[in-house]
C-alpha cells in the first residue's frame, strides 16, 4: 500500500502521563475508505490515541500522519477535512437542530471544492441521520439516541474525508444502537469516508468495521478482520466426546486431522462435540490474560 492511500499512518506512538505509560509503541495504518475499529477495555488507551490523531493532545514520541499531516502542526485546512464525534457531548443545548447544523456548516464553506462541496446540505444531512422530524427541536430536548445522531451529523457537516467516533454507542438502548449502526454503514458507502471508531463492545466492532485492531495496555495485540482475528488468535478448538463410560476433552489446532484419527482408532466414540472459540472468547481471553499479567496501576489510565 503506498503512503498516498493511507489516511492514517502511525508509527511507534508513545504517550506518557507522569510516570504512567498509556501508549507503548502503537503502529497503525488506515487506508482510504476503510472502516477500522479500535477495540479494547476501558483504560486501554483508545481515547488517548484518538485525541492524538485529532490534534487535541501532544504525543510523547512517535510519528503520526493524518491525511498526510502531523496533527500537532496541522492548520485549519486540515481541520476542515476531518470530522470528530467525541464521548458524551451535550453542547449547544439551547440551539435548534437545523439551526446548529446550518451555523456550524458555514465554517466549512471556505474549504469547499468541486469534488467535495462543503458544507453538507442541512436537509440532506438531517435525512441521512434520521432527524428531519426534529429539525426544529432544541438539542437539549432530544432523546439520547437522537442526540448522538445529531453529534454524528455535526461531525459530517464539513463532509470529512476521515471521521473519528469515540465510543459512539455508550448508553444506547438496543434500538438506538441499531439505528446508529445503520447510519455508520451508510457513511462508509458515502464519499469514500474513512472511519476510525473506538468501542469496548466486540459485537459492534464485528458489525461495523472492515478491520479490528485490539488495543490492550497501550499496545496493539491483534489486527485483522473479524474472521482473521478468530483464526489468528483462536486456531485451537476443543473436542469433547464420550468413550465407553469416560468423558474426554481434547484441545487441538487441527480438528479435521484429529477427528479422522480419533474415529478410526476409537469406534466407541459417541456424543461428539467440536467447539471452536468465538471471537468473543478470544477477546475476553486476551483481556483476562492481560489483566492477570499487568500491574494494577493501569486501571487509572484514561480510556
Amino acid at each position: 500500500m503506498s503512503s498516498a492511500d493511507l489516511v492514517v499512518d502511525v508509527h511507534d506512538l508513545r504517550m506518557r502521563y507522569g510516570d504512567t505509560d498509556v501508549l507503548r509503541g502503537v503502529t497503525l495504518r488506515i487506508a482510504r475508505g476503510e472502516v477500522l475499529t479500535l477495540l479494547g477495555p476501558n483504560g486501554a488507551g483508545k481515547t488517548t490515541t484518538l485525541e492524538i490523531l485529532e490534534g487535541f493532545r501532544k504525543r510523547s514520541a512517535g510519528d503520526v500522519h493524518v491525511l498526510g499531516r502531523d496533527p500537532e502542526r496541522a492548520d485549519e485546512d486540515w481541520r476542515a477535512r476531518i470530522g470528530i464525534v467525541l464521548q458524551s457531548w451535550r453542547d449547544h443545548g439551547k440551539w435548534r437542530v437545523g439551526e446548529l447544523l446550518d451555523h456550524l456548516g458555514r465554517y466549512y464553506s471556505p474549504f469547499s471544492s468541486p469534488e467535495r462541496p462543503r458544507p453538507y446540505d442541512t436537509g440532506e444531512l438531517l435525512e441521512l441521520v434520521g432527524l428531519s422530524k426534529v429539525a426544529n427541536r432544541t438539542a437539549q430536548r432530544l432523546s439520547g439516541g437522537q442526540r448522538r445522531r445529531l453529534d454524528v451529523a455535526l461531525s459530517l457537516v464539513g463532509r470529512p474525508e476521515l471521521l473519528f467516533l469515540d465510543e459512539p454507542t455508550v448508553g444506547f438502548d438496543p434500538e438506538a444502537r441499531q439505528e446508529f449502526h445503520d447510519v455508520v454503514h451508510r457513511l462508509a458507502d458515502l464519499d469514500n469516508t474513512s472511519i476510525l471508531l473506538t468501542t469496548h463492545d466486540l459485537d459492534e466492532a464485528e458489525k461495523l468495521s472492515d478491520r479490528t485492531v485490539v488495543l490492550l495496555g497501550g499496545r496493539i495485540v491483534a489486527d485483522g478482520s473479524a474472521a482473521q482475528l478468530t483464526t489468528q488468535v483462536a486456531g485451537r478448538a476443543e473436542v469433547r466426546y464420550r468413550c465407553g463410560d469416560q468423558q474426554l476433552v481434547h484441545s487441538t489446532d487441527d480438528v479435521t486431522a484429529y477427528l479422522r484419527d480419533l474415529l478410526r482408532q476409537e469406534p466407541e466414540v459417541e456424543i461428539l462435540e467440536v467447539r471452536r472459540a468465538s471471537l468473543e472468547d478470544v477477546y475476553l481471553e486476551m483481556v483476562r490474560e492481560f489483566d492477570a499479567d499487568q500491574t494494577p496501576d493501569l486501571t487509572v489510565v484514561p480510556s
Binding site: 485529532e54 487535541f56 485549519e76 485546512d77 481541520r79 476542515a80 470528530i84 467525541l86 458524551s88 457531548w89 451535550r90 453542547d91 449547544h92 443545548g93 456550524l104 465554517y107 466549512y108 471556505p110 474549504f111 455535526l154 461531525s155 464539513g158
Partner: peptide, 11 residues
C-alpha cells in the same frame, strides 16, 4: 458541556 471542544474541532 463540550461547546468549546466542539468549536475547537471546527475550522
Amino acid at each position: 458541556d463540550g461547546t468549546l471542544l466542539r468549536m475547537k474541532a471546527i475550522p
